[in-house]
Amino acid sequence: MKVLDVKNITIGFKDRFGFTPMVRDLSFSIDKGEVLSIVGESGCGKSITAYSILKLMDPHISEIRGDGLMFGERNLLSATESEMQQIRGKNISMIFQEPMSSLNPVFSIGAQLTDICTLHTGDSKKQAWQYGIELLKRVHIPSAGECMHKYPHELSGGMRQRVLIALALVSPSLEMLIADEPTTALDVTIQAQILNLLDELRKETGLTLLMITHDLGVVATLSDRVMVMYAGRKVEEGSLADILNNPSHPYTQGLLSSLPIKQHERLAENRPMFAIPGNVPSLKAISEACPFSDRCDRVISECKQAFPSEAAISDTHRAWCNVLDEGIKDA
């Protein structure tokens, strides 16, 4: 069963000069209990996509167009702000990449938790306080009762991210969690703890997880399926094994080849590490062509004319590239 079905949406910013698309013709869906990762480098539109699902962007400067943003039976594209308030935190919640600044500095952890609890569960303050302690225990915060009285600045980054996860888990009718680079701001050992926690929570509760990340390590730890984005376009999609073992799009291949762990030979020979040449194009300058064509070493003339059509590699694995057949090679 599909929890979320995104149909052909284009997200962009509008100003007095017109509409600038940041994400184009994006379609994807997530099944219940599945973990989908969206991978791509900074500015590829993955965070904008996450924000758009909850319609968190300022409607005065941004716009979501397309055929549908189906959450179950509801089309979120036509939902009003007050309808979205009913869904946010209750059915879909989100955790962010800046745990240090995402908690309100002048309220205690307990105050913030109980407020959200009373909002979504209708509990009394006293019940909500108990429930808050339970939630903190569930995200493995030691001495949860004491933590309720603390203020955000008294907690470390990892602890704050746990509190934010607890906040996101408040609603008993939660169906999907969006994690926007939840580990980017944390150091490596804490990253692993947070990833383990997310993995544990989804195994316990059957939660659907949409993971936004640029870290292929995170992808490998958690995902069932992976979607690769480049400059506002989806360029490849497949199961975790498809993407890691048989990357097909030149960009995905480049991304995987750039991993330091795959570069023993180069390092041994004292050659510089591999990196994809060039830079991400400015989103304002993007034409209808394949956005990667400027950096691709296999570019052909068709690439410059239109965005490539879908090419199926297997039942689960798809890429949007004109030069796939000659392209599949060792990363």
Binding site: Q85, G89, F96, S102, V106, V170
Partner: peptide
């Protein structure tokens, strides 16, 4: 601020965000 975005993503109504969360800061 990020913490306002957090409570918005948790479904706190706009008016309450302003009256309770933002005003104290």
């Amino acid at each position: 601020q990020d913490y306002v975005r957090t409570v918005r993503s948790l479904g706190v109504p706009r008016f309450r965000i302003i009256r309770v969360y933002a005003l104290k800061n």
